[in-house]
Amino acid sequence: MAPTVDVDTAATLLRAGKLVAIPTETVYGLGADAEQPDAVARIFAAKGRPSSHPLIVHLRAADALDEGWAANVPPAARRLADVLWPGPLTLILQRGPRALDAVTGGLSTVGLRVPAHPLARALLERVGGIAAPSANRFGSVSPTTAAHVQRDLGDRIDAVLDGGPCEVGIESTIVDVSTGVPRILRPGGISREVLEEILGAPVPMAGDDAPRAPGMLASHYAPRAKVVAVAPRDASQRAHELAREGRIALLAPPTLALDLPDALERIDVPADPRERARTLYESLRAIDERGFERAIVVLPDDERGLGLAIADRLRKAGAPKD
Rank of each mutant, 00 (worst) to 15 (best):
A41C: 05
R313I: 02
L14K: 00
R192N: 10
R95I: 02
S142A: 08
A229S: 12
L258V: 13
P300Q: 10
E125Q: 08
I190N: 07
R60F: 13
A317D: 08
E282W: 01
P211M: 11
F44S: 01
Q150V: 15
P165W: 14
T12F: 00
G305Q: 11
P75F: 07
P133S: 12
T104N: 14
E265C: 03
F44L: 12
G139C: 02
T104R: 02
V114K: 02
A34W: 04
I184A: 09
Y281D: 12
L308Y: 01
G111T: 11
G164V: 09
R285D: 04
L258D: 08
R266E: 03
A39K: 07
V83Q: 09
P50L: 05
A21F: 07
A10P: 07
L89M: 01
R95F: 06
P54H: 06
E167A: 14
A41D: 05
I287D: 06
L217M: 12
L256R: 00
P204I: 11
L308C: 06
R212L: 10
H58K: 09
R192G: 03
P223F: 06
E171M: 04
H53V: 01
G48C: 15
T255H: 00
G48R: 09
S52H: 14
E25Q: 11
E245H: 10
D66M: 05
T104E: 14
D288N: 14
M205I: 13
D38A: 15
V5W: 03
D262N: 03
V127L: 05
D262T: 13
R224P: 00
E171D: 12
A131Y: 11
R224W: 04
H220C: 00
V298L: 00
L251A: 09
I157H: 09
S178F: 00
A34E: 07
D152Q: 10
A201K: 04
I92Q: 07
A271H: 09
A41W: 00
G31F: 08
A222E: 08
G48S: 04
A218C: 00
T24Y: 02
A77S: 14
V269Q: 01
A39L: 14
R266Q: 13
V141H: 10
G164D: 05
A122I: 00
A286G: 12
P88C: 04
D208H: 14
R247M: 07
V297P: 08
K18F: 08
P232W: 05
S178P: 06
P204A: 12
V57W: 03
L280I: 02
A131S: 15
P204K: 02
L55K: 02
L65N: 13
H240D: 05
A2C: 03
R266F: 07
H53L: 06
G207Y: 09
R313M: 04
V297K: 05
L124F: 14
P261Y: 05
R15Q: 15
G96Q: 06
A122M: 02
T255N: 01
P97K: 06
R15I: 12
V127M: 12
E35S: 07
S191E: 09
V5G: 07
T104L: 06
D262A: 15
G17C: 11
K321L: 10
A311M: 13
V269F: 09
G164T: 12
I296M: 01
I198L: 15
R315A: 07
G215E: 14
V203S: 11
P88L: 04
P86F: 15
L84T: 12
A235L: 11
I174V: 15
R266S: 09
V110Q: 07
I174H: 11
